[in-house]
Design a protein around this nucleic acid. Structure first.
Lengths: 224, 224
DNA sequence: ATATTATTTATCCAGTCGTATCAATTTAGA
DNA sequence: TCTAAATTGATACGACTGGATAAATAATAT
């Protein structure tokens, strides 16, 4: 009877939870629907996960694990890459992950709209450490001339991640409004290309890590 | 007793609905909480708005009205502006609006995560017309050399709006993680500066619009 | 002042929510 | 095979949901 391909109840619940929480957020999701999707009795949730909250946390931790895996899978080769190539590699991996698992971004978005215990947990355990490293990485890349350096690293970071994943977050809207499926492989690669072109400093404008002032202008100093 | 400054029940309900739907989405919001916040009996919702759904639609329509007002408030002066200045003007207005009323982006985000009748209504009545015009405007600005032109207008548009409003959507997270209030005026202006620097082509690299030489003046026709 | 309408309030209802309980069943160890 | 533990299933409970109803009150018109 066992095929080895079937998931146990716990795993089935986790997968179904990822999908439901990703679509409807914590408040919009019912544990009964998760259990239905997983094909198990809803009483089992209390057994495998002590509560809806715990199941939500398990889903988040699971997705962050996948993210970490995806973004760092080429880490061993980074030492052979230029700073620019490293950024391209990690950004590409990040965007591909965002396309493959839009649920993570969505779940985080649902929670980041208001204060809650879940947001506190999320921030302490994942967002702050992850974002701190990411912003430090952006600042370094600015010094290395990969990104423009006349913009605060924090703003640049939030623009970067928004640029990367927004189109996948809004996939249902784009599908409905323009009949474009942004999850098509072609669309994904086109988006990667676009984001890299838009966020990175043009290659020929790249400057040496250490010395001089900006090769490209400061002529943008004030726009207000 | 009447001061003239007080809102009537209908308006109080609308304002409270905007806040609640903006924080918790449609599913996460209860009409009783809205009525409590508005300081009225929850039965009044049924009287002034026939249902929770109708109240939600009224809140959305109200916010889109404010958006339209904010983005087009300088429209009369656009004819005196260069294409670049027009983009700066409308983008600045859009970002300021996103900071002042993050509820609209949030409400749309809640709905754009999954298919629903509300998303259909939202798309038909607001998103498609609004986004169509915006993408056409982006394409024109690309021709005019304000944006880079080696990226599809749709991708550029979604990067633009994500860059503009993402930081305000994630305000609670940023506050909690880094104790930064992105709604501070300084932060808002800094963000506007950053977004414009990041999304627009550097001024000195601007190229002539296809035919003749007058690249910087008001030789353009419509905003579609 | 009276009649009519507009608005607000107080309950009620059926359905769903998360969760707790406990019996039924399956699994694993001896 | 027998027993104990692990797991699943069925059911119940109180809280809350959106919506409906009708009585109570306020506002307006005549």
């Amino acid at each position: 009877m066992e095929t080895g391909l079937e998931l146990d109840t716990r795993s089935k619940l986790l997968k179904a939870a990822v999908v439901q929480f990703g679509k409807f957020g914590f408040a919009g999701t019912s544990v009964r629907k998760i259990a239905d999707d997983a094909g198990v009795n809803h009483g089992s949730i209390k057994y495998h996960y002590s509560s809806k909250d715990d199941l939500w946390r398990a889903a988040v931790a699971y997705l962050y694990g996948l993210l970490d895996e995806a973004v760092h899978k080429d880490e061993a080769e980074w030492k052979n890459m230029s700073p620019r190539e490293q950024i391209i590699n990690s950004a590409t991996n990040y965007i591909r992950f965002s396309a493959k698992h839009p649920e993570l971004s969505r779940i985080v978005f649902f929670e980041t709209m208001h204060e809650s215990e879940r947001l506190e947990w999320l921030t302490e355990n994942f967002i702050r450490p992850y974002t701190s490293r990411a912003i430090a990485r952006v600042a370094l890349a600015q010094e290395q001339g990969v990104y423009v350096d006349d913009v605060p690293a924090m703003n640049l970071h939030y623009v970067n991640i928004a640029a990367a994943k927004n189109i996948f977050l809004m996939a249902p809207e784009i599908k409905r409004a323009f009949d474009i499926d942004v999850f098509d492989d072609d669309q994904i690669e086109q988006h990667i290309d676009a984001v890299l072109k838009l966020t990175m400093r043009p290659e020929n404008a790249e400057e040496k890590p250490s010395s001089d002032g900006t090769g490209t202008d400061k002529n943008f100093s004030n726009v207000t």
